[in-house]
Computed example of a mutant assay.
Amino acid sequence: MNNAAMLKMTLSMAIFGSIGFFTVKTGIPAIELVFVRCICATLFLGALWLITGQHKTEKWGRREVGQTLLCGIFLVFNWVFLFKAFEVTSITVAITIYNLAPIFVLLLGTLFLKERMTWTSLIAVLVCFLGSVLIVGINTTQSFSEFMGSGFLWAFLAALCYAMTMLLGKGVNQLSAYAMTFLQTSVGIVILLPFLQFHVFEGLTTENWVYILGTGLIHTGFVYYLFFDSLRKLTAVVISALVFVDPVVAILLDTLILDFRPTLVQALGIFMIFGGIIYTLIESSKRDSTGSH
C-alpha cells in the first residue's frame, strides 16, 4: 500500500471535515461562498495543471467534456445546498445526512444503470432512512413550509447532487483530474455569476476574509490537489474507509468547539446512518472484487 498516498488522502479528508466550521465563520451566504470557491479552485488547480504540463497531453473527447460539464453543474449545486444546510442546522446533522450520498449512488445505480440490489443492501438503505427520520425528529410539529426550509432538506439535496456527480464522473477516463476540476469549477463561475449579491462582501471583518479565503484556497484548491494526487494510487476499499475521516472531524469540531449536543434519539440516528453506509461500502467492495454486479 502506498503510505504517502494514504497520508495525503487522510489529510485531505481531515481538512475537508473542517469546512462546516469555516463556513459558519465566513459571514457570507452559500451562493457567494461557492462562487469564491470556484474562482480559487479554477486559479489554483488551473495553475497546477499548467505547471505539471498535463494540459499538453489531454485528450479532449466531446462526450467526456459534455459529461464533465454536466457533472460540474451537479457539483456546484451540491456545494450550494450543503452550505445552505450549514446556515440553518447544526454541522453534525448536515454532514450526517450529506453522507447518505453512497446510498443514493446505490439506489440510482439500481434505477438507471440496472445494477442488482441485494436484500442486505435494501435493509441497509432502510436503516439509513430510519436513522435520518430519527435525526430530524419524529415528534416535531413543523409545517410543510418550515420543513422545506430546514437544513435536513438542503443536506438531502446536497447528497443527491453529490451522488449524481459520482455517477457521472465514473464514465470520464481520458481527461485528467485537473482538467475535470478546471472545467467543473469554471462552469460554477458562469452559473453563479448572475445570482451574486456583491453587497454581502461589504463590511466583512479580517477574520471573515481569512475564513473565506481559507475555504477557497485550502478546502478547495489544496484539498483537491491532495485528493486527486492520491486517488489513483489507492484501492477503492481504502478510499471508502478514509472518506469517513471527513464526517468524524466535522462532528468532533461541531461538538468540541461549537457546542452541539445531539439528543439520545439523534445520536442513535447518526449511528444508524453511518452503520448502514459502512455496511453498504463493504458489501459493494466485496462485489467489485468478485466481479459481480
Rank of each mutant, 00 (worst) to 15 (best):
A14K: 12
G61I: 02
A101T: 00
L258E: 06
L281R: 04
I103V: 15
I95M: 03
I251K: 05
G109D: 10
Q54W: 04
G53R: 05
A4C: 11
F86R: 11
K114A: 13
K84M: 13
L268Y: 03
W119M: 08
I189R: 12
T110L: 13
G169C: 01
Q142D: 08
D229I: 12
F74N: 00
I95A: 04
M164Y: 07
T181M: 12
L157P: 01
L50F: 14
Y211T: 00
L70E: 05
L281A: 06
C161M: 11
Y178G: 00
G214D: 02
M164A: 12
L193N: 05
K233G: 01
L48N: 07
T140S: 13
V210R: 07
D254S: 14
A163F: 09
Q174T: 10
T263A: 09
T206N: 10
T255E: 01
G188L: 01
A179E: 00
G291W: 11
I212S: 04
L226E: 03
V237A: 14
I270H: 05
M166K: 04
Y98L: 06
N78V: 00
L167T: 06
A4L: 15
G66F: 15
I73T: 12
I31C: 09
I73A: 14
M166T: 11
L192H: 03
E207Y: 10
V248C: 08
L175G: 05
L43A: 15
L70Y: 01
G46C: 09
V249D: 01
V245N: 02
A250L: 05
F74E: 01
T89E: 04
K25H: 13
S186E: 02
L167N: 14
V200M: 13
L108A: 08
S289L: 14
V187N: 02
F228K: 09
G171S: 12
N173Q: 12
L160F: 15
V190G: 08
M117E: 02
M272T: 01
Y211W: 12
L242N: 00
T205Q: 09
T42V: 13
E146D: 14
T255I: 14
A250N: 02
L100G: 00
Y211G: 02
T118P: 04
L231F: 03
N208V: 03
E32G: 11
L7A: 15
F274K: 05
T10W: 07
I278L: 15
L126R: 00
